[in-house]
């Protein structure tokens, strides 16, 4: 029995080793550096005169309107974009799973937004959103609606960014759900059909619950990534109008890379990390995703 336990431990350690070494090696040093920097006034402008200022960066951050606005923008953007993506993604995945014709073709088309070089897609959106030359306003006018300022108007800018993000990332949810659907056993579905359940009943009573871990994971990863969104906002609005679409990550970029205040930027990053950790813990615990469902009894 003892040798059996040893064998088990050895197997676990060996299988976890490569991932552990890689992640410790890659993330530990940068993390510690930015954690320490966040307690200093380190700026590349005067690297020799760095002082330890303890929580000053955090206090400064908490008392700045801009931080709270950026936090609100980030949260609104993340929640709305991810919700939209999950709803559309799960719905389409389920429809595609039932479809019998051209599945390969459709799946490939659906994956395209994820496959295209993002910078090309983002600049294409910038061109399409252009109020005077863009195709969106051309459609609006053709359909008899007034043209919109899209990215320049306080009422439509964030919405436009959410649309772009949804276009780009719904395929991610879709792909995970398709993989999930493909690995689900068939029996429950067949049994339900025999019992005369409607498609909708099957969807809500069987598909969703069985797919739930996958939806949860897709939602989790999308939220983590959306919380850090940078590229599309940087290219499309630069955080405007005013600072109404400026996210935390954009705010950190301004301070860290453009103003070279690495200490301050570090504190923004740490706050973002703390928020994400707390929300993810709550989410994973509530949904019982943190621990494995069922493990070998031996």
């Amino acid at each position: 029995m003892n040798s059996f336990k040893k064998q088990r431990t050895k197997f676990i350690v060996l299988m976890l080793m490569p991932a552990t070494i890689l992640l410790v090696g890659l993330t530990l040093f940068p993390f510690i550096v930015s954690l320490i920097l966040s307690f200093t006034d380190y700026s590349l402008l005067r690297p020799g005169q760095t002082k330890f200022i303890f929580l000053d960066n955090y206090i400064e951050l908490m008392t700045t309107d801009e931080f709270w606005i950026a936090l609100r923008v980030t949260v609104v953007f993340t929640v709305l974009a991810v919700l939209l993506q999950v709803i559309i993604g799960v719905f389409i995945a389920n429809l595609l799973h039932q479809e019998t014709h051209n599945i390969s073709f459709l799946r490939t088309i659906y994956l395209l937004p994820l496959a295209i070089t993002p910078i090309a897609a983002t600049f294409t959106f910038r061109l399409m959103f252009n109020p005077s030359l863009g195709v969106f306003n051309y459609f609006m006018k053709s359909l008899g609606f007034p043209p919109q300022a899209w990215l320049a108007s306080p009422s439509t800018a964030l919405f436009s960014l959410i649309v772009v993000d949804t276009w780009q990332w719904t395929p991610f949810i879709l792909l995970i759900c398709l993989g999930g659907l493909a690995s689900l056993p068939n029996e429950p579905f067949e049994a339900a059909k025999v019992d005369g359940a409607s498609n909708w009943q099957i969807f809500t009573k069987i598909t969703i619950p069985m797919l739930y871990p996958f939806i949860g994971l897709a939602l989790l990863f999308r939220s983590i990534d959306a919380f850090k969104t940078f590229d599309i906002i940087y290219v499309l609005t630069s955080g405007g109008p005013g600072i109404l679409t400026r996210t935390l990550n954009l705010y950190a970029f301004k301070h860290g890379i453009e103003f070279l205040s690495m200490g301050y930027a570090g504190s923004i990053a740490i706050i973002m990390l703390i928020i994400t950790i707390v929300v993810a813990q709550i989410f994973l615990r509530k949904n019982n995703l943190l621990k494995p469902k069922d493990t070998f009894k031996r």
Partner: peptide, 14 residues
């Protein structure tokens, strides 16, 4: 969770 957390840090400060 630790593995998951490596995805959470915004890369800019790092």
């Amino acid at each position: 969770f630790w593995i998951l957390s490596t995805r959470m840090t915004p890369p800019i400060a790092m």
